[in-house]
Amino acid sequence: MSEFEPKIVAFFCNWCTFTAADLAGTSRLSYPPNLKIIRVMCSGMVDPKYVIKAFLNGADGVLIGGCWPGDCHYINGNLKARRRVALLTEVLKQYGIGEERFWLRWIAASEGTMLREVAVQMTAKLKELGPSPLKNMGQMAI
């Protein structure tokens, strides 16, 4: 059997983290293809239901990438994201999704290497943890 390849849904903010992903691309830094990047305008626009949806539909991990506090193009959207993520983490725990599967990271536009680092770390962590307990619950729930 081939090795378990976790699927990570990555919501990246248009201004900082998405640019970092671009930078990693233009700098030809390769990172695990496990990241499924979805561009959002601001990390603050990631609704908790998107995260839950991703887990229900088979994501093994969800990564939200936003600008560093103080950096947000929309003034403080990333702080709102931080607050929501803290609450959502507690909720997800009730369903067997530990905080190791749900990451929020600040990655600035110039931090292409950090983006790769996070991608590598998260992929490794999820390989260690194995598939998400909610995997394919989506079909039942919806």
């Binding site: 959002v40 305008m41 601001c42 603050g44 626009m45 990631v46 609704d47 908790p48 193009h73 929309y74 959207g77 709102k80 929501r84």
Partner: peptide, 10 residues
């Protein structure tokens, strides 16, 4: 409005 989407989540 700058379309940041905070209102949609809230």
């Amino acid at each position: 409005c700058q379309a940041c989407g905070l209102c949609a989540v809230e």
